[in-house]
Design a protein around this nucleic acid. Sequence first.
DNA 1: AAAGAATCCAACCGCTGTGCA
DNA 2: ATGCACAGCGGTTGGATTCTT
Length: 542
Amino acid sequence: MTVKVEQDPALELPPNTEAGAGAEFSQPLSSGKEEEENDDDEDDETDSVGYDGAGNGGGAPQLKKGPWTPEEDKRLKDYVEAHGEGNWNQVQRNAGLNRCGKSCRLRWANHLRPDLKKGPFDAEEVDKIIKFHMMWGNKWAKMASHLPGRTDNEIKNYWNTRLKRHQRANLPLYPEHLCSRVLDQDMNRHIPDESRGKKRSNELTQEKVVGMDDLVGDLMVFQHLDYGKDPVVPTNPLKRHASTGDLSYVQSLDKVENFYSNDLNYVLTKSQSVPLGSATANGYPIFDGNPSTSGTIHRSKKTGLPSFQCSSYEFSNSWLLQCPTASLIEQQLDTCIQSPESMSSQNTGLLGEIVNKGDALDDCTKSERLFEMVFPPLGYNIVSQSNAYPMRHPSSSVIGDCEPEACLFDEIQASNSPSAGSDAIFAYGKCYPDASFSDARMPGTSLEAGFLNDDPLSKDQSYPYLSSSLFDADSSQEPKLLTDAGQWLDSFAWKSMPGACNMPDFPGISSSLLGNQGYGQHILEEPKNDLLQQPRLPTGFN
DNA sequence: AAAGAATCCAACCGCTGTGCA
DNA sequence: ATGCACAGCGGTTGGATTCTT
């Protein structure tokens, strides 16, 4: 796990390099033929690792591959410092580098950028990485954006190393201390499911809205939560398949994957008439149709959902058994694993069942039921809720569609103490397929707050939003928000949001939330568009 | 000390998304 | 609508280094 602290090679140029003072960026290191290369297609059979770039080329333009030399680094660094980042093919052409633009970008981003933090990950960073992975899966770039000075490649390498090491040692991938506090606090005050469900049914009279990322993420979290007495063997099904050839094992795991993917995507299909990435085709989950042979796991890659790195064993951990609903999941899972044939379209697992049952209910109740069935296993007392505009479309969802500006929050966590008033915030504003978020995030949770940008219906608007479901109720830890820039915010506040609101009233988020990041004006910004007064359907909502 | 295994990590590859002509 | 260039992302590879036996 040591990361070598290597001196920036660009700083130590060989004595007789030509790229010293006054080096022009127009002299290629090699033949320097202008080529209209497609950098993706340059992987010809030239073993260019070690290619010295000195006239080896002959006719066809050949780009050097392999390790960068200090001289190349120097050229690249000088060029980027002089001309800025971007336009990497121009870099390649103008900096005298016989490297493809992609390679230049990578070299700069991973090694030459001045703001890079070298050296091994410290404990805090490791902590973050683990939490981030719990939340997002293999979203290395996203993680890197929250770890200043770190690159996605670095994080990815670290994680893969960690994964291997933990697999080998039969250690849990996610250390208990990162998960258990959720359980510690919530299991103790767990109300039996029935009563809590009833209570919640009474409490929650309005539509609950959940995003699939949360749903899936949270389900994944409770796969990972609590490793019980026995160590968990986090197993990558694909790798296990490749290395052992144990088809039945892989098949089982694929069924597990199928089990969840089917359900979740089914819910997704019903919940959102908008595509979630390319995870669904025509609203149905994508599988390669031959899980026993291909071992391909589509979901985590295509949807950005957490990687499926648990073995089936992990599903039967002790924590799951403590929760009736979770036990039901586990039962179905076992059934699924042991006799995959029993999985029919009528019996697609818990979530499918929820959906089926939910079909008989009105939209509001359906959402509520789903919410109750999915989230109580996680042990959260839900005292806050979001409110979407009423379902207005025949195909509206089990979960609910949410327009960010239409969400309201009856009660949002009081400032600086998530455990003071509520331990769960269920508010969600993520509904546009193409939306991007400039967000703040509470580590260890999937709580986000920030601004929804790039609204396809109103490009110029910035909507404040809160998203996600599980508010970490760890009173021992000061809540923090992390901006996209990786800066921790010392102060923020979730203000209550009394009554229904639409966009003009929306800012239940104090301007102090992100005000010191310069976003306050956006938070309080009045909408310019009359459309905001009315619920709108997401793009593609037919 | 030597050989093999394990680990690290830089670089590459394929793919996707976006902007633009 | 289409094709192209470009940027970026995540997975994979393979050489170098370190560790273990």
